[in-house]
Design a protein around this nucleic acid. Structure first.
Length: 431
DNA sequence: CCACTAACCTATTCACGAG
DNA sequence: CTCGTGAATAGGTTAGTGG
């Protein structure tokens, strides 16, 4: 992207764009230009971009940061002696203001087509805070520059406030737009989604580490009342392989398996299950709306960083491990248990766990917690067992079950559920 | 450890194009 | 003119880099 500038080596572990490290010559060019005009228009920025090899949007960011930095400096300095920055007179809150410079041309308004918009809207509904990977992917899919995607999301967030928590949740029964996912990992950095259902936590960019096993619905179906209760501590699959259950309902006609890729995902199970500070909250209930077709997928998720197209990440499922972790994990999630996090180097170094932001407030359990966890567990387990032993799934899962775990592209296991089964499962999970 | 600063956020405003 | 929405700004936080 910025061929001549040196992005930081680190693999952008938080979903931010790699940090640019400016060369002295680049910095000098920018500074010189800043002195001419701290509010460069699009033409100047593009010129600078050509000249320095820095992307135009980064140049814009640089100018904004520099203005802010100098302003801060001048303010703190003005606390005592008067400034050194060019000031515009008494009481002027800032050393310079846009009015003092010729109004430079803005970027031309980008015409976003309806098809592009619908892609963006779809992405927005799943995640209001896409990380870098997601933005890049959207840029690819829409053909719009990443910076426009970024701005589009900013504007959208500003104009489409999160629906208030007090809004009456759609009941499961009346909602045909439900999805429940119990992922244990996200093998797909591009789909690493952060979720600020009610706005970012303390800060939007903060709290990236915790991720949530997810059971999504039109509202948070359940929440742990205590982070450390339930089936905690099991961190199935240790660090790399995570069992997962996905119950997804998709209206859109994704090719088989693709809906998995579009699910917001979380960090590794190691991270999620073991972060003492990581709440175990479900993701934004607004996710996965407008979907009708139910599908169940089970498996171990293995991260495959070598895969260039992360969106194509597959579930890689050692067959022998399917049922137990699958059901067990369902129980665990159902019990909303969580464990302590003893971050291993491995999990800490995992790239792409971008924007794995926390659910800001653990909205207190929507799930009646009066039931003994074991009962939940048994019920869910038996339901899942039932599902897994259903003739339909048996047939479908044969190749899956017989697959070689080492196989590079193991088959996927997916099952379409009828409404009744789906509801039964959700009811059990939610009850 | 700490200062600096790129990246990213919200809130607000400006401005353009369509109806 | 109004409305919807892309672009820009100030002001703030987070987190990577380098002294």
């Amino acid at each position: 992207m910025d061929p001549t500038s040196a992005p930081s080596r680190s693999q952008n572990p938080r979903g931010r764009r790699e940090r640019l490290v400016l060369k002295p010559s680049q910095r000098e060019s920018l500074r010189a230009s800043f002195e001419q005009n701290p509010y460069p228009g699009i033409t100047t920025r593009e010129e600078l971009a050509r000249e320095t090899g820095i992307a135009e949007d980064r140049i814009q960011t640089w100018f904004a940061n520099r203005r802010a930095g100098l302003l801060r400096k001048s303010r703190s300095a003005s606390g005592q002696a008067s400034e050194e920055e060019p000031s515009q007179g008494q009481g002027e809150p800032q050393p310079w203001s846009p009015e003092n410079f010729p109004k430079a041309a803005r970027r031309k308004r980008t015409a976003i087509t309806t098809s592009q918009t619908s892609l963006l809207v779809e992405a927005f509904e799943e995640n209001r805070y896409p990380g870098n990977e997601a933005k890049e992917e959207l840029a690819q899919r829409t053909g719009l520059p990443r910076s426009r995607i970024h701005v589009w999301f900013q504007n959208r967030r500003a104009r489409k406030p999160v629906q208030s928590a007090s809004a009456p949740p759609k009941s499961l029964a009346e909602s045909s737009t439900h999805a429940a996912t119990l992922p244990l990992d996200q093998s797909d950095p591009s789909s690493v989604q952060s979720t600020y259902p009610l706005g970012p936590p303390s800060h939007p960019s903060s709290s990236n580490q915790a991720i949530l096993p997810v059971l999504t619905e039109s509202r948070p179906p359940f929440l742990p009342s205590e982070p450390s209760q339930g089936c905690a501590g099991q961190a199935p699959g240790a660090m790399m392989d995570q069992p997962a259950l996905t119950v997804n309902t998709a209206e859109t006609s994704h090719a088989p398996g693709t809906q998995l890729n579009q699910l917001p995902t979380g960090p590794t199970v190691g991270e999620r299950l073991s972060d003492p500070q990581a709440p175990f909250w479900p993701q934004h209930p607004g996710n996965y709306q407008h979907r009708h077709q139910h599908a169940v997928s089970a498996g171990w998720l293995a991260q495959d960083p070598s895969r260039p197209d992360n969106s194509k990440t597959q579930w890689q499922v050692p067959a022998q491990q399917v049922t137990a972790p699958f059901t067990q994990w369902g129980c665990e999630v159902a019990q909303a248990g969580t464990a302590r996090w003893e971050p291993s180097q491995e999990t800490l170094q995992q790239p792409g766990h971008s924007e794995a932001h926390l659910w800001p407030e653990p909205a207190q359990s929507a799930r009646g917690s009066s039931r003994p966890p074991d009962q939940d567990c048994q019920e869910i387990e038996s339901l899942l067992d039932e599902l897994l032993s259903a003739p339909e799934l048996q047939g479908k899962s044969q190749s899956f079950l017989n697959a070689d775990p080492q196989q590079e592209d193991p088959p996927q296991l997916q099952l379409s559920l009828g409404d009744l089964d789906f509801r039964a499962l959700l009811d059990a999970l939610q009850d």
